Computed example of a mutant assay.
Amino acid sequence: MIAVAVRPAASRRLFGEHEYTDKGESDTRKRWWQWERRRMMGIKFGREYRDIIDDFTNALQEIERCHEFLEMSAEDWGELNEGERKECIKTLADDLFYGLGTEVQMSVGDCTVTHDPKRHVIRIDQGEALTRVIHLV
């Protein structure tokens, strides 16, 4: 049996209302879920999904006005504590990862997030400058 947890509305674009959690699951089930997740997404990756999302979350935290992608006002964003902001950014990372499987490039704040399938990376560029690279393999 696969464990599921209900996620906030902003992240339901990823897997409907559910996301896999590995609490108490066997290694076989974890590998199966990761394989299934890869099959459902257009981005190929070899690293653990959780590690990619952690790196992506850290990179997105540095982007000014990233809350606009989540359709939040600056006032609403300012009212959140640090933990709540990190959860929102993690949701954003999930959504962007899924979205980059269908669109090669997306805008977040004043940055451009691009999936480079030849190099197996996600690039975050601010204007003409490369800001961060998230390795997928």
Rank of each mutant, 00 (worst) to 15 (best):
1 M>T: 08
2 I>H: 01
3 A>N: 04
4 V>P: 00
5 A>M: 11
6 V>S: 01
6 V>Y: 02
6 V>G: 00
6 V>A: 01
7 R>V: 10
8 P>G: 07
8 P>D: 09
8 P>N: 08
9 A>V: 08
10 A>R: 02
12 R>E: 12
12 R>H: 04
13 R>M: 07
13 R>Q: 03
13 R>N: 08
14 L>I: 11
14 L>D: 02
15 F>R: 00
16 G>I: 06
17 E>P: 00
18 H>Q: 10
18 H>T: 09
20 Y>T: 03
20 Y>D: 02
20 Y>L: 05
20 Y>K: 01
21 T>F: 09
23 K>E: 11
24 G>N: 11
24 G>W: 14
25 E>V: 12
25 E>M: 10
25 E>A: 06
26 S>A: 07
26 S>R: 05
27 D>V: 11
29 R>E: 06
31 R>H: 06
33 W>R: 10
34 Q>A: 10
35 W>I: 12
37 R>D: 03
37 R>A: 12
37 R>V: 09
38 R>A: 08
38 R>S: 13
39 R>W: 05
40 M>G: 00
40 M>K: 04
43 I>S: 00
43 I>H: 03
44 K>D: 12
45 F>D: 02
46 G>I: 01
47 R>C: 10
48 E>W: 09
48 E>R: 14
51 D>T: 14
52 I>K: 05
53 I>Y: 13
54 D>Q: 11
55 D>K: 10
57 T>I: 03
58 N>P: 00
58 N>G: 04
62 E>P: 00
63 I>N: 02
65 R>E: 12
65 R>S: 14
67 H>L: 03
69 F>I: 02
70 L>D: 13
71 E>L: 15
72 M>C: 00
72 M>W: 00
75 E>K: 14
75 E>T: 12
77 W>P: 01
77 W>K: 03
78 G>K: 05
79 E>C: 09
82 E>W: 06
83 G>Y: 13
84 E>L: 11
85 R>V: 02
85 R>N: 03
85 R>Q: 15
86 K>E: 14
88 C>R: 15
88 C>N: 15
88 C>F: 10
89 I>Y: 11
90 K>F: 03
91 T>P: 03
91 T>G: 15
93 A>S: 15
93 A>L: 08
93 A>F: 11
96 L>D: 09
96 L>W: 06
97 F>K: 09
97 F>V: 08
98 Y>H: 12
98 Y>L: 13
99 G>F: 04
99 G>Y: 05
101 G>R: 08
102 T>N: 09
102 T>R: 12
103 E>C: 07
104 V>M: 07
105 Q>K: 15
106 M>N: 11
108 V>M: 02
108 V>Y: 02
110 D>H: 12
111 C>Q: 09
112 T>K: 14
113 V>M: 01
115 H>C: 07
117 P>A: 01
118 K>P: 01
121 V>M: 06
122 I>M: 08
124 I>L: 11
124 I>N: 13
125 D>F: 04
127 G>W: 04
128 E>K: 15
130 L>H: 07
132 R>V: 01
134 I>G: 06
134 I>R: 05
137 V>N: 10
